[in-house]
Each structure stands twice: as C-alpha cells, then as structure tokens.
Design a protein around this nucleic acid. Structure first.
Lengths: 341, 341
DNA sequence: CTAAAGATTTGAAACGTTTCGGATAATAAT
DNA sequence: ATTATTATCCGAAACGTTTCAAATCTTTAG
C-alpha cells in the first residue's frame, strides 16, 4: 500500500542503499541518479518511515514538552514559541499536557521515553508537594532535561538530581513593580498571593519584601493576603477583604486574579488608579485588552524559550558527562506600565 | 546504554519472544515467567522502543492534530479536549501548529505521514483561498482525515475529495442570537463580520439574514459591516462606524472583536444594553470575565471533539472501502445570555 | 508406562531504514 | 593497453520489536 524505499529503488532500478543515499542527499552518488531517484520518489509519493529511520540511526529528532495546562494563555504562549523554535532546529515536538496531575505527567514522560525523545523540557505545574517519579524515569533513561519557567525548590539542593532551569527573575520583577509603586508615592501596598506554598509565589513575595526593606521599613505582614485560588474568582473574592485595610495600592501575583480584583473594585466604586493603584504580573494578552489596561510585569517568554532550547540542544549535542549541574538561568523581567498605576 | 528487550530476556533467562509476550500480557506464557520478566524489566528500567514496535506492528498509535494557532483560546480549548480524549482512547497526539501558513501545514502533514499516524484531524485555518496540497498528501497516503470546527467550502463539492467534518451549526447559532435580539424588541441590528471571504463567516451571516427573513423583512445590506481584522483592534476600530448607523443592537462575529467594540462604545459613553445591546460569538473564557459579561453563542466544543475522534476512530478501525463520503455533522450551538443584551 | 493433548517456550523472519566494506565502472596515469 | 585511482553503486548487516510455526516440556488419558 504505502510505498517503501524498496519500491523507490526498484522503480529507479537502483539498489536500496543508493536510493537511501540519494534521498538523503549524501555524497557518493551521481547527480544523475540522485535526480532520477528523487523523481521516482515523488511519483510514488514516497514518505520515509520515521520509525525505521529512528530505529537505525538512534535519532528520533523528537523533543518532549511537558506543560501543566494548555488553555491557560501563559502556557499556550510557551507551547507556541517552543513549537516554532523547535521546528526551526529540526526537532519535532511531542506535547504532554498533564492537567496538573502527577500521574499524567508520569504517563507522558513514559511516552516520551518510549519515543526515544532526545530531550525533554518540563514546565512544572503549581503544586505544593510535587511528585517526582517522572524525573526518576528521565534520569535512569539518561534523557537530557531542562526546566523552563520554574523549578521545584527541593531540586536546587541537589536532592533529586541536577537539573538546569531557565526562568524569569520573578523576585526581581515583583521588586521592581513595588519600587515603582513606592516611587509613585504609595505607602500602604497590599500584596495578594495565593494560599498555596508554591515556589514561584514565594519568589514574588520575596521581591515585595525586598522592595520594602530597601526603604528601611519592614514589610507589614498584615498586608499580604492569600486568595483561595489563583483564578479570577479568587481575586474577585478577596477584593472586599483588601478594602478593609484601606490600601493605596495592590500588587497581585498574576493578571487573571488582578482582573477579578479590578472587577470587584469597580463594583465598589473605587477609582483606579486615583483611589487605589493596581498591578498585575505576567502580562497576559487580556492585561492589555482589559477595560482599563493593567500595569504588569512581563516575563520574557521568547528569550526564556530560546535559551531553554539552546541549552537543551547543547546537552543533546555533546552529551559528554560534563552535565552542567543545576544551573539556574534568570532572565530579566520587564515592567509594563499602563493605566492602573 | 538503554536496555532492550534482549537485555530483559537475557536477565530473565528466557527467549526474546517470551519476554515480549510476557510484557504485553499475551496468553500462552505462564504466570510465573510473566511475573519474573516484569520484575526484571522494572529493575532494568526497560522502556519499549516505540519505533521498533510501530515498525513491525504497523500501528503507531499516533494521531495528528493540525491547528492554525495555539495562543488563540478557541484552538487551545480544542487541543486540550482532543488531548485528553485521545489519551483515553490510547492514542498519542502529534500536534501541528501551522500559524496560518499553508507551507507549515504541509510540512506538519509530512511529519505526520512520516510518523505513520493512524489518522489526522484538521482544524482548518481562516483563509480565503486555502491551499490544499497537504490534503493531497493525506489522500495518497490513505490516511483517514476529519475536519473539525469548519471545512473549506470547495471540498463539499467533492472537488478535492470526500472528507467528513464535525462542527457547530454556526448559521443556526447566529440565527438564534438574532432572533433573541429581535424578540427583545430590537429592530436595527448591525452585523459585524470581517473583511475576508471565509466560510465560517458566511455561515454566520446567513443565520443573520435568515432571522430577518423569517420576520418578513429583508436584512438591510447597509447594516452589515466588515472589520479589517477579526481581532480586538478590528472591533475597536469599527465601533465608530457602527455608531453612525444608530443601531439598537450589534451582533458580532466573535467575542474578541466584541470586546473591542464594547471598549470603544464604553469610551463613547453608550450604555450597554440600554442604548445598544451587543452580542458576541464563541463564548471564550473572557466573555464571562469581561467588565460586563457578554451574551454570546457557545460552540459545543466538547461534543464536537468527542464526535470527531469517534468518527476518526471508526474510520481507522474498519478502514473498509466504505469511506463515508463528505458527511457534515452539525452540533447544536447554545445561546448564552448574560449582561450585554 | 506410553501416547496423545495441551501448555509453554523458542528461533527465525519480518518491518523499513541507514551504514559501510567491498564490488564494479569510469577515468587518469603510465 | 595496462594499471592505478577515483567515482559509483551494491549487498548485507543492524536497529528493537512482534509474530508464528516449530520444538520442547507437562499433564492427562488410556
């Protein structure tokens, strides 16, 4: 049914090996036969069988990309960039969407391994006690792995292995945003986070604290709040609590909660930013399109993705024992000032 | 380095074929050896090589999913649902993101073919003159293919082949929305589309017209408008033009443009829905989260994805010549009435 | 205790490629 | 014309599985 290289060879009256070399444009075969083989191949609609090739060359040309979700625009942006970058580098991406489930993550990693991906990129999910079985699989299979966007804290201690990570300097980002608010004259800045002991959350909070400390004043613990969920509703729900503190500014951990907060603030008739300035984080698409475009800090996703792939590629290429141990690369965030501050 | 089934067999002092049957839980091998082989396999961290298996069984267990974009929440929702459904059916998804480029689409289809995917799902891109080379590839490779969400008009005529499609009844959706507006007492309903001769756009417009015709009054051609782009800015820009027509309602072709329109209307001080009612289409996540939650029509994506996979699976399973010719399955849309109408 | 039947295991072929040492043909040097 | 050199081409092995007919071992029946 589907034509093989054998069919092509026969039709071009040439040996299988010659056909192979011709199609792969290897030296050692005359231009004339190359042309002929290629023509025949096109006529027969020959499509090389990736499995067969991968089997013999031991080169799948595939990368695994593991993300926690895909509907979330933050992650879909990453997938988008990774896909185009990987394609440009000649890799085919295998996508795993774990839906924040550890067992799914594990299942996908197994699929990756079985497809003999050359490397995998993990965009870790938000989770208090991350299950790391999938990492063990990757480790024993010796598959080069890089974290992107965040890592699990315990791993830095080398407990679980020495993985590298490329991510935004979240602490610095929040720090700069708070500095910006302070410079604008705000004193009573509330920080709203989420009620989960997650790594990337802690980093932002540290930035908040550092900004205050630099002013010589300790960050008031009473001014940090924890929403139930890092979603629209979480922001909406906590807005009333925030108002009781009479803040003159609110810095929120992400844009989507910020939208929730703004909605409630608007309902309560508070003017933004005259009464209260509000800042988000991440610079999601809707941050710009919101009723009142929100000030936020942008993670340089393009650069993060580029460097992630670059590092992974290097690891794959040399594969020498010299595994760079747990290097963490921080990319500069960018302050985006719009209308809410 | 990586252990093969040969290693497992040796370590379990058993033939390769026995090991294979044991690991695949085939009948004809004793429980005792099965247990032993499995244990050894776990110890050696054996992961079956998908390429080798795929090669001999001629069953890649892979499906190709082709989407035009991924950052667009409409498409990422589809990818999300497809991924989980496919996984449940034992398929691995290969994702192709064409970024609305025909040549990319073609390249991905080639990759699909080379991976010997069992079937492919195409979510077509919005394009006036769709290039269909990738379809030819699929056709000659005899790869079962289904369109999802939309199809290109010319294909229904059987010009290019007989592909099936599962999609929302867009005409009916727009029809119902306009009926709803009419029932609310609106007479001067503007329809805003985009300046592109795209199939799914036409369907909605037909729904608009049909609703008017049912009232005995012809749809006023002066009341349909074409924005430059089907994006936020397109909506924003055309809002001023709309206002000149003094409409009492606006029905827009999608939610994101609707957000743009609302933003401009808000700036111009028109009250929604008292002065003008506004309706969107698609029910994107942000439709609900908008400053004023917008009324819209929801495409039943879950069902659409389910049926798409179901049909594809059937095609794959029987593969008999009885290829159902160009069947188009329309799923019922759902009217979501919120605060803008 | 032996033959038949059934259960279990084995060996080899096959899948579609690439690779590589060797064979052949073409060209150059003598 | 003969040999040396080079440019092409070929055949066979290998990659890691599954499958299936044949071989071996166990059990049952006689």
């Amino acid at each position: 049914m589907k034509s093989t290289i054998r069919d092509v060879a026969r039709a071009a009256s040439v040996a299988v090996s010659t056909a192979s070399m011709a199609l792969n444009n290897k030296p050692g075969v005359s231009e004339k036969t190359k042309k002929k083989v290629r023509m025949v191949a096109r006529e027969l609609c020959y499509v090389p069988n990736h499995s067969a090739r991968s089997l013999v060359t031991n080169d799948s040309k595939c990368l695994g990309l593991m993300v926690p979700e895909i509907v979330n625009p933050f992650y879909s942006a990453i997938v988008d960039k990774m896909a185009t970058l990987a394609e440009g580098m000649g890799y085919t991406l295998l996508l795993g969407i774990s839906n924040n489930k550890s067992n799914q993550e594990k299942a996908f990693v197994k699929t990756f391994a079985s497809h003999r991906v050359l490397g995998v990129i993990i965009v870790p999910m938000l989770c208090e006690k991350p299950n790391t079985e999938h990492l063990d699989i990757l480790k024993t299979a010796r598959i080069p792995t890089i974290f992107c966007t965040d890592y699990y804290d315990e791993w830095t201690n080398g407990v679980k292995g020495n993985y590298s990570c490329v991510m935004c300097d979240l602490e610095q980002g929040e720090y700069e945003m708070i500095r910006h608010l302070i410079k604008l004259g705000h004193k009573e800045i509330c920080f709203v986070s989420v009620d989960m002991d997650v790594h990337f959350t802690q980093l932002r909070q540290r930035g908040y604290q550092r900004a205050y400390e630099q002013e010589g004043l300790a960050a008031d613990e009473n001014r940090v709040f924890f929403a139930d969920q890092a979603r629209f509703q979480g922001g909406y729900d906590i807005a009333d609590v925030l108002l009781k503190q009479n803040p003159d500014a609110i810095a929120c951990i992400n844009d989507i909660m910020t939208i929730g907060i703004l909605k409630r603030l608007n309902e309560r008739g508070v003017r933004i930013p005259e009464d209260i300035a509000v800042a988000g984080f991440d610079d999601m698409m809707f941050a710009e399109l919101a009723q009142k475009p929100i000030s936020t800090v942008r993670q340089p996703l393009q650069r993060i993705c580029e460097r992630t792939l670059e590092m992974l590629d290097k690891k794959i290429k040399k594969q020498k024992g010299a595994e760079e141990s747990g290097k963490i690369i921080l990319e500069k965030p960018e302050l985006i000032i719009r209308s809410t501050t």
